[in-house]
Design a protein around this nucleic acid. Structure first.
Length: 375
RNA sequence: GGGUCGGUACCGAAGUGGUCAAACGGGGCAGACUGUAAAUCUGCUGGGGCAACCCUACGAAGGUUCGAACCCUUCCCGACCCA
């Protein structure tokens, strides 16, 4: 019995339901990131109330703090943070890339120097699976080796082959009660990507993810590889684009048949004062953007149909008493003004971070809701 | 009335003969951010539309010197102390 069912398609795009032990997820879906046990600035009930179906946790960060022993003792991170829905956990593989200066890769696994206290911490595929189990994940990711977006073909191939070997060990070590996804590597090379996918399908996972994109390569390469590999991925399993991206990217990836997304941009950029504001009525914006994506329009043309990106701290908003975003249905974006939001940022008030995060995360989730209607 | 210490760019504050259009903070103005070491990071912030360069500048006016924000004189302003 499959836990993934495609309900409808539109061109290459799919609408589907993914069942997890903690509830079903409608796809295409955007998954807000709660790296260390919170979607930064938001209460778990707020995350739920703005429509999030599933959130992410991170193995590396939760392994360091609070650690697997405590997580097992209290019944997992979801219980600790009061999140009742599904959770997907990244394996720590991304930190092999983002914390490259603090780690050493070997065949057995990766040794990190903790960014918190410098102590040496080992993550192997087996340790990653054990920690993800302790976290209480519904969907675990295999431990992988992520090569930077400017790597040589040799480095891409090395990372891809090692990820494949680690995929096998991850699958073998995984708690069978949980789902586990494999991760396609291979950088910007289609043949390497194809070999990666083939190897993963032979191992057989509950879903397949496209990893190692949006890590420094050109947007053109990202789109090219995403489209190419999506067309080769199994149709009866969820497809997950890891870590991407800007709204126009997600619309594009949905149009080529990808189902799941996560990205720090809505939350991090919110804390940095960058706000995504609807260009008009969301249903119409997304409809236009999706149709442009299906026609293969340039990314900036998809973007301009969707939103305007503003830096709320900029001078023009000083006395702008209009709502943060009249088209965003999160109540705080209607009742609070741009001028107030700017003031909160300038004054260093925490409330500003919250209002901005609510706005951006709801923007992303609403975009997915509208996309689901179009498929 | 006497004395002491001060007056530096939007603000605070270094600098005390050349390498000073002037460190560093803050503020201001922009930019970046893609499976979160990020409420972070980067750039600009006297004028001439950029570089060399030129102009105006370190309370004011004179002076010493090849050369002054830095030394001297007087004045103005501030803080503190003594009468």
């Amino acid at each position: 019995m499959s836990n993934f069912e495609v309900l409808k398609t539109n061109g290459l795009a799919r609408q589907a339901v993914l069942a997890t032990p903690s509830g079903a997820i409608q796809t295409p879906v955007f998954m807000p990131i709660a790296t260390v046990g919170s979607v930064k600035t938001m209460l778990a009930e707020e995350v739920k109330s703005i429509g999030a179906q599933i959130i992410l946790g991170n193995t590396y960060h939760l392994l360091l703090r609070p650690g697997p022993e405590l997580l097992r003792e209290v019944g997992g991170i979801k219980k600790l943070m009061n999140w009742q829905g599904p959770m997907l956990t990244d394996s720590g593989g991304y930190q092999v890339f983002s914390l490259a200066r603090l780690n050493k890769i070997e065949e057995k696994g990766v040794t990190f120097h903790s960014h918190i206290d410098g102590r040496s911490v080992e993550i192997t595929p087996e340790i990653s699976m054990d920690v993800q189990d302790a976290i209480g994940s519904d969907i675990m990711m295999q431990f992988d080796d992520v090569a930077a977006g400017v790597s040589t073909r040799e480095r891409y191939e090395e990372a891809m082959l090692r990820s494949l070997r680690w995929a096998e060990r991850s699958k073998a070590a995984a708690n069978k009660a949980r789902q586990i996804f494999g991760i396609i590597q291979g950088g910007t090379h289609e043949d390497l990507r194809a070999r990666s996918l083939e190897g993963l399908v032979n191992i057989d996972f509950d879903g397949y993810a496209i990893g190692g994109l949006s890590v420094g390569e050109s947007r053109e390469d990202t789109f090219r590889i995403a489209k190419h590999i999506a067309s080769k991925m199994p149709t009866d399993k969820p497809r997950y684009f890891m870590g991407g991206g800007m709204p126009e990217e997600i619309v594009y990836y949905v149009s080529v048949g990808i189902d799941m997304f996560d990205c720090v941009l809505p939350t991090r950029n919110a804390r940095h004062g960058q706000i995504f504001i609807w260009a008009g009525d969301p249903a119409e914006c997304v409809k236009e953007a999706f149709s442009r994506a299906q026609e293969g329009a340039a990314d900036f043309r998809i973007a301009e149909a969707l939103y305007q990106k503003i830096q709320i701290t900029n001078e023009p908003f000083t006395a702008d008493m209009s709502p943060i975003d009249r088209y965003n249905d999160v109540p705080t974006s209607q009742t609070y003004s741009k001028a107030y939001l700017k003031h909160l940022f300038k004054a260093g008030e925490m409330l500003g971070l919250r209002l901005a995060t609510l706005q951006n995360v709801r923007f992303y989730i609403r975009m997915m809701e509208e996309l689901r209607k179009l498929v």
